[in-house]
Nucleic acid binder design. Structure first.
Lengths: 173, 173
DNA sequence: GTGATGTGCTTCGAAGTCGAAGCAACTGGA
DNA sequence: TCCAGTTGCTTCGACTTCGAAGCACATCAC
């Protein structure tokens, strides 16, 4: 009953904590700015930005949810909110009746454009100010690899729709 | 006033998105493990871990909230929850009657110990697997600097109630 | 076709989260 | 001492978030 072997050394632990803390701090700061500048929550901004980034300005609900790492039901809620405000439209897909296509409106783009400068300013002040060019490059490189790995390794949504049971943590008779 | 020049290049944008995405994905995965292993939310785990890390096993509410980047009211709620489960105790401070000292209990430490191995395993699999030793070192270094900078730079909410008149831009030490 | 199963989205209920307001204790200057 | 301003925490109300359950369409094997 001695301590189990923790396979993390001090550097790893430091990286982990720094990652969580830095992203939390940054997110809070950005959230504040978004609230002030365009009365958007962070998720809403992410959604608009994702849509704005798309060539067509639209995405399917599910893809949007995956993109911003968000629950489907939560996305339904936010999409409704954004639709009420006229920043996106939701239309049934042509090829698949079940599917809903979300599209950013002109007004949505306008809000996005209005927010963006301040958004960038916050990032500059808080995230990039103390970092050199090569710091940023290293950060982008390492985190992109980590992200891609995590995307590839379905941690939680291995089975989005819980199958009855396939593995035997507890085995049925 | 035409569009102000966005001062972010592609690399910076990539670093920003990768940071948000990676931390989101990681947090979700960890959340899942915490739920399964010890029925704790991420915040609750952070709180216990912070307390467990303290030499005395205790902290003031406010310091705790600052440590995990959390609202005070939210902390009150979580502290009550943890107290009900017997994982922490809350006692008025000796020197300041307003202040509440939160202390981790033996049971709290036990829960923490039970969770830790699985927690580490998730980190290994998802975050560290695709990264080299020097990657992790770079990550820890860069993010630690960013975090420290953000901690030092009160974003925009520096004064929730404080009415300081220090002209938002004074940097002169 | 037809039924079984999978997929896309929404609804529902419960829990978590935040900011503002409020209470009580501390502080410093007159 | 007194009192106004500050600080530490909690309460309150409104909103957000999630997972599970549910509905409707799609797809596949036969």
């Amino acid at each position: 009953m001695t301590a189990p072997p923790p396979r993390l050394d001090a550097t790893q632990l430091g990286a982990y904590f720094a990652l969580i803390e830095a992203s939390s701090l940054l997110k809070h700061a950005v959230e504040q700015q978004l609230r002030d500048a365009g009365d958007l929550s962070y998720v809403q901004f992410q959604l608009l930005a994702t849509l704005g980034d798309s060539p067509t300005g639209s995405r399917r609900m599910t893809d949007l949810a995956d993109g911003v790492v968000y629950s489907r039901s939560g996305l339904t809620y936010q999409a409704q909110t954004l639709e009420k405000r006229g920043l996106v439209t939701r239309t049934p897909s042509a090829d698949d009746e079940r599917s809903v296509t979300v599209t950013i409106t002109e007004e949505g783009r306008a809000v996005l454009a209005g927010i963006f400068p301040g958004h960038v300013a916050v990032l500059d002040d808080l995230l990039f100010a103390p970092l050199s060019r090569s710091d940023v490059e290293a950060l982008a490189d390492v985190l992109a690899r980590a992200r891609d790995h995590m995307r590839r390794t379905p941690p939680r949504s291995a089975e989005p729709r819980r199958r009855k049971k396939t593995t035997g943590t507890d085995q049925a008779p």
